[in-house]
């Protein structure tokens, strides 16, 4: 096998599409893992003083976790479209690239919005440390950041859902 054969063998439509699924899950998942970790550290600090606020802190900690879920959803829908869980379809190079590009919004926006959201949520942990009644405001402030991850998810998901291989 020459190098060229190996190279063209690597660049199939299916591999490109799978790369899209992987990137969506990896990058958005990394952002969420980092974000949930950041808020987790802040909330553990709060637990040292007042363990009874665990429930409230948990909600805030879970918030930056959704981007990873959005990445997972995108990855899964791509995998479904590739027929990997049923009868596999062969994608052209262009179709594979289409799915790879479609995965980009949630991968990139998911990563950054998870971290930014985590910073707001961690600040919210400090807020409920001092004013436990204000948990609603802390959650709302963090949820505002999530809007852009949701938009990115829609932009990723809609082209993929409308995509039919071979059409």
């Amino acid at each position: 096998m020459t190098f060229m054969e190996f190279f063209t063998g690597l660049f199939t439509g299916n591999n490109l599409a799978l790369t899209g699924a992987a990137v969506a899950a990896i990058v958005a998942g990394m952002g969420s893992a980092k974000g949930v970790g950041m808020v987790g550290e802040a909330s553990t600090g709060l637990m040292m003083e007042d363990p009874s606020k665990f429930g409230k802190a948990l909600i805030l900690q879970a918030l930056p976790g959704t981007q990873g879920i959005y990445g997972l959803i995108t990855a899964f829908v791509i995998i479904l479209k590739m027929g990997l869980l049923g009868t596999p379809v062969t994608l052209t190079l262009g179709e594979g690239a289409f799915l790879l590009f479609a995965a980009m919004p949630i991968a990139i926006v998911g990563y950054f919005s998870a971290i930014k959201q985590a910073r707001v949520a961690a600040a919210g942990i400090n807020l409920i440390g001092k004013h436990p009644g204000e948990v609603g405001k802390a959650i709302t402030a963090a949820a505002l950041v999530e809007t852009y991850a949701i938009f990115a998810l829609l932009v990723s998901l809609l082209p993929i859902l409308f995509f039919t291989p071979g059409a």
Partner: peptide, 9 residues
């Protein structure tokens, strides 16, 4: 988006 998230998972 949230509706899709629930049903896809």
């Amino acid at each position: 988006a949230l509706g899709l998230a629930a049903s896809v998972i």
